[in-house]
Design a protein around this nucleic acid. Structure first.
Lengths: 199, 199
DNA sequence: GCTGCGATTGACTGACGAGTCAATCCGGGT
DNA sequence: ACCCGGATTGACTCGTCAGTCAATCGCAGC
């Protein structure tokens, strides 16, 4: 990993460059040399820090997904109505997009939705998020806040699916963006799903 | 297209073989020779009927998506409450999966969710479906069946996103399958979303 | 000033697989 | 019997990269 006292962490530089390149050209379409160029670094250095092109994307995804997982766990541990927990989770994801659209674009397009390539490889990690959210729903069903007719697994799919679809809409320019749009989306998604789940 | 009086339509044979191969190995991972082998046909024949490997997938997708689009238009033209229209649409999609899981798997995994490759190319076609469903929602908002607080565009994303996520869950074995599961899913998705949208 | 070692470089290799193409086959028309 | 054109074959070409590697750099410690 990070070894000595260098002015800049080239590993990080490469990772950040990769985000831009992946967001712009897509993972499959770009060449490793594109990443190196964008980072202002020699081709071989990418392989000094990473074992493969794939590993660059894996690193990007795992870094960020673990943050998300922590955020969900944190939220879940709070003593709040499920509706507010889900609002917090949706809020976190949407804020992530607002804060770094390129990174979220890469994670969604190249991993989360890319069931044919990296999505399959990271199914386990992705499912962890589903499972955590399902836990929120189950607890709410136990307390009577949510009705029990809808299995928690479906509730999660509806919630996460709706959210991801909205993000995808932004990424593709199918949906308006901007601060009000983000706030609106946050409210609408949570409202729609929670009304659907509420007892 | 189909020219003379041959016993079997090789073009169709190739297409059907491609569905199996794509479903099993994935579009990017499989070779054109895999398709030819699966179809029991020489390599070059694939290029006699199709201009490229991509065009094989394009054909599969467009063939089926147009059927879906027609089904939605048909449903929309009926005089039914929006809730029932959405139920019919969800039903059609789920039945498509039940009837030919391989084909739906390919369409969802390799096109619809594959924003990085074919999804981008077919955004237009895919959006047509969103737009049609948005029409259903808007009409329901006009009659007061659905409330107007949620923009129709979001409603569509929630509806379609939830549905696609459930299908994806089946494809990855994350969700139970079987006849009762399909019926349940149909009801749950529609119920959840429509309660969320209802006035 | 020298040595050691990780950081950095970039030319080169090797595999892989899409697409080409010239040859062959085959059935129907004359 | 012969010809024509579409169907069918499969060996071969050709470009593209991912990944390798031997060489060089530059700083830290002595």
């Amino acid at each position: 990993m990070a070894t000595s006292r260098q002015a800049v962490d080239k590993r990080r530089v490469i990772l950040d460059a990769a985000v831009r390149v992946f967001a712009r050209q897509g993972f499959h379409t770009c060449r490793v040399s594109d990443i190196a160029d964008e980072a202002g670094v020699a081709y071989g250095l990418v392989y000094h820090y990473f074992q493969s092109k794939d590993q660059v994307l894996d690193t990007l995804f795992l870094e960020r997904w673990d943050v998300l997982l922590d955020a969900i766990r944190e939220t879940d541990s709070l003593d709040l109505p499920a509706t507010e927990k889900l609002a917090a989770i949706a809020g976190f994801i949407i804020e992530s997009y607002r804060h770094d659209p390129d990174l979220m674009k890469v994670i969604i397009i190249e991993v989360t939705r890319a069931a044919n390539s990296f999505g399959g490889a990271h199914i386990g990690k992705i499912s962890e998020a589903y499972e955590l959210i399902a836990g929120v729903v189950r607890k709410a069903q136990a307390t009577g806040e949510f009705r029990t007719e809808i299995p928690a697994e479906f509730a999660v799919m509806a919630f996460y699916g709706a959210l991801e679809q909205v993000l995808t809409g932004w990424i593709f320019g199918l949906l308006d963006q901007g601060d009000e749009a983000y706030e609106g989306a946050k409210a609408h998604v949570v409202e729609t799903i929670c009304r659907g789940l509420a007892a």
